[in-house]
Amino acid sequence: MSWSDIRLFFQQLFFLCQKELIALVKDPRLKFMLVVPPIMQGFLFGYAANYNLEEVPYAVIDESHGALAHDLIAHIDAAPAFDRVATLTNANEIADQIDSGNVICVVVIPQDFDRLIERGGQAPVQVIADGRNSSIAGLATGYISQIVATWNAERIGTGGITIQSRTWYDPNQETQWNFVPSLMAMISFTQVMLLAGMSIAKEREQGTFDQLLVTPLGPSQILIGKAVPPVLVGLFQALAIFCIARFWFEIPCAGSLLAIVATLVFFMVSSTGLGLSISAISENMQQVLIYVLVLMIPMALLSGMATPVANMPEVLQLFTYIDPMRFAIDAVRRIYLEGATLFDVRWDFLPMFCIGAVTMPTAGYLFRHKTT
Rank of each mutant, 00 (worst) to 15 (best):
S4V: 13
I6N: 11
L8T: 01
L8F: 13
Q11H: 14
Q12S: 09
Q12G: 01
L16R: 06
C17K: 01
E20S: 04
L21A: 06
A23S: 10
A23V: 07
K26D: 06
P28Y: 03
R29A: 05
L30K: 04
L30A: 10
K31W: 12
M33L: 14
V35G: 10
P37L: 08
I39V: 15
M40E: 05
G42R: 04
A49E: 03
N52H: 12
E54K: 14
Y58L: 13
D62K: 01
S64F: 09
A67M: 11
A69N: 07
D71C: 02
A74W: 15
A78D: 09
P80Q: 06
A81E: 04
F82I: 00
T87D: 11
L88T: 02
I94C: 05
I94P: 01
D96P: 00
N102V: 12
R115L: 14
L116P: 00
V125W: 01
V127N: 00
I128H: 02
A129M: 00
R132Y: 12
R132F: 02
S135C: 01
A140G: 08
A140Y: 05
A140K: 07
T141F: 05
G142N: 09
Y143R: 05
S145A: 15
S145H: 08
V148W: 03
V148N: 12
A149E: 15
T150E: 09
T150I: 04
R155D: 03
R155C: 02
I156R: 15
I161R: 14
N172I: 01
V180Q: 06
S182N: 04
L183K: 02
M184A: 07
M184D: 03
F189L: 10
Q191P: 00
Q191V: 03
Q191M: 14
L194F: 01
A196R: 06
M198H: 01
K202V: 03
E203M: 11
E205D: 07
Q206S: 12
F209S: 00
D210Y: 12
Q211W: 00
L213D: 07
V214M: 08
L217C: 02
S220D: 10
I222M: 08
K226Q: 13
V228P: 02
P229Q: 04
P230N: 09
L232I: 02
L232M: 11
L232A: 07
G234V: 13
A238C: 13
I244Y: 13
A245V: 02
A245D: 10
F247I: 09
I251C: 00
L257Y: 08
V261W: 03
F267H: 14
V269A: 06
S270D: 06
S270V: 11
S270F: 13
T272D: 07
G275C: 08
M285T: 06
M285D: 02
M285E: 08
M285Q: 14
L289M: 11
L289A: 07
V292S: 11
V292T: 14
L293H: 05
M296L: 08
P298S: 10
L301T: 14
L302P: 05
S303V: 15
M305L: 15
M312W: 04
E314H: 04
T320C: 15
I322K: 05
I322V: 14
P324H: 10
P324S: 13
M325K: 05
F327V: 04
D330E: 12
L337C: 07
G339W: 12
T341A: 13
T341L: 11
D348N: 07
M352D: 04
M352A: 08
F353R: 03
C354S: 15
A357V: 13
M360V: 11
Y365K: 11
L366N: 07
K370C: 10
